[in-house]
Amino acid sequence: MDFNHTEERRMLADSLRRTLARGADWATLAELGVLGALFTEDEGGFGGQGFDIAVVFEELGRAGSPLPVVEAGLAGGLLADCGQAELVEQIIAGTLRPAFAHGEPGLRYDHGPIRTRYEDGRLTGRKSVVEGAEGADLLVVTALENGDTVRLFTVAPDAPGVTLYTTPSLNGGSVSEITFDGAAATPIGGHMGLVENRIEAATLAVCADALGAMETARDMTLDYLRTRKQFGIVIGKFQALQHRMADVAIEIEQARSAVINLAGHLHADALARDRHASAAKNMVGRVARLVAEEAIQMHGGIAMTEEYALAPVSRRLIAVDHRYGDEDWHLERFIRLSA
């Protein structure tokens, strides 16, 4: 039994934390090894295990980074699965940023059925709430081949027949609705099983990101409770607030354990992995909301303002529940998998 991260992972987390605190662009992330940490040695990286993903995304979440690393890891993983070693090499080097276009209107959080079609070398259909598509170098797209089998395709986002409609994201980056109207695409093979595997890894990434963001919200709230005075004393001396803060701390530790469980089972058999993914995502969705709401309430009015640094953290924590399945979606799946 050992709940310590390896020396390499601790070093990566430390350097990442220091660099992100100063602000980091995509090239800097690549230099630090963030992208390499998402791929196994076989794929050309130096990580790719559950705890590599957990360490990296916890720091990205702690710093509130708006960069679409989850999506690059997901799309890049699928490219690796499909033998696109050259593209993966560019991703790890930071010179190619891919995004993954999979969800469609009406699917809610389900992974299918996919309606986008690939016929005669061209894609037709609509992908919905795609994170990080704006400014991406390459889109990895799921579509039906021969009308019945989901396969993977790559498309240039600026190719004729591709239209992006982009808005800001609750999460801090951007999301796009993408319309394919006979856009030329390259088939790279693959199947839904690979997509499911990579979505579980992305779910871990989002959970770990939330954990970092929760700790940021907790620390900001603690600082405020220690300094804000009302009725002549710091408000952290009020027992009603102390006890609520204690509950927040307990819940964050529970969420951390759930994320550890998932990271440790990411490469276990699919049933064990998916149960832990749903357990973690259900709990993280619930706790992230609790932490955001309590942080706002205990701060009071100041936390309602855009100017105060908690605002993007709160939005990020609420957005967690809308990415890769919400509390109820994962509760339902957990029940099904436990039957």
Partner: peptide, 27 residues
């Protein structure tokens, strides 16, 4: 409000304020 947020699923992610003319574009 929380349940409405849950109800719309992924549509809660596009996060749009009104522009200067008061128009709102949400997909």
């Amino acid at each position: 409000n929380d349940l409405a947020r849950r109800a719309v699923g992924p549509w809660a992610v596009p996060f749009v304020s009104e522009d200067l003319e008061g128009n709102i574009y949400h997909p």
